[in-house]
């Protein structure tokens, strides 16, 4: 990166919501490497203090840590208003995979998955959007999922919440397109993270967190609207979406 570009980036701030996740950590590093100031947002802020210090030592950038339980939706506005400056970029990485069989049996678990992947992230980004709209600039990035492209027996509670989140992001993008605020939807596909540890994932379809972070930073710089991290997911999900329901309902996917 040229020094002038780095200098320009150095005045920018990126906020990572869900900073303890593997993708969140990788994103924080990618933005810090550009020289951006970083705000790490996590439910238990003490768990990201080590990451904050690591970012400072590696990249010499300013890093602050903010505690937020995303499910505590009334706190959203308070946390945003307490920031010294509204970030230029806000990335929503937080989410909860949960367990589908348990979600089918226990309403509390299903509600937790729905709230963690749709309600809370969407409401938070809604608050961010209003503030960015007022300022007339900003980038909002939502990490959604291919699981939201079509409901499947194996993960439809999670998938339906991600579908809602994807639709919310697309609506936000539509609303803010002429207000100087850009919205990017990211569907990473399989990623080798804590969430998927122990699953037997196909290598060709599975991205590393660093790969997701690099793709996100690049797509945001190019003002892309929605991306799959690995291109191979586009034909796969297109086919999955096109299968007629009569057939799809009998399939095991």
């Amino acid at each position: 990166m040229s020094d002038t570009k780095r200098a320009a980036m150095a005045t920018q701030t990126a906020m990572i919501v869900g900073a303890t996740s593997d993708i969140g950590r990788a994103l924080a590093r990618a933005y810090a490497a550009e020289g951006q100031s970083i705000v790490l947002c996590a439910r238990r802020p003490e768990t990201v203090e080590r990451d904050a210090e690591d970012l400072r030592l590696r990249h010499g950038t300013t890093v602050s840590v903010v505690g937020l339980d995303l499910l505590d939706t009334p706190a959203h506005a308070r946390v945003l208003d307490a920031l010294p400056v509204l970030p230029d970029t806000v990335v929503m990485v937080a989410g909860l995979l949960g367990e589908q069989p348990r979600a089918a049996a226990e309403i509390v678990h299903a509600a937790e998955i729905m709230r963690s992947n749709y309600e809370a992230p969407a409401l938070f980004l809604g608050e961010v959007a209003n503030r960015m709209e007022r300022r007339g600039s900003g980038t909002i990035i939502g990490i959604s999922s291919v699981a939201g492209d079509r409901g499947r027996a194996t993960n439809y509670v999670y998938g339906s919440a991600k579908a809602g989140f994807t639709a919310f992001l697309s609506g936000l993008r539509n609303r803010l397109a002429r207000q100087g605020v850009h919205v990017l939807t990211v569907k990473p596909g399989f990623v080798a993270t804590r969430m998927t540890e122990g699953m037997d994932l196909p290598k060709a379809l599975t991205a590393q967190p660093e790969e997701v972070a690099a793709a996100v930073v690049k797509a945001a710089a190019r003002q892309r609207d929605a991306i799959y991290v690995r291109r191979v997911w586009w034909p796969i999900m297109t086919v999955i979406r096109l299968i007629p329901e009569q057939i799809f309902k009998r399939m095991k996917l």
């Binding site: 990451d51 210090e53 690591d54 030592l57 590696r58």
Partner: peptide, 9 residues
């Protein structure tokens, strides 16, 4: 591999 932080310099 996930434990890859620089803690102090």
């Amino acid at each position: 591999l996930p434990a890859d932080r620089i803690l102090a310099f």
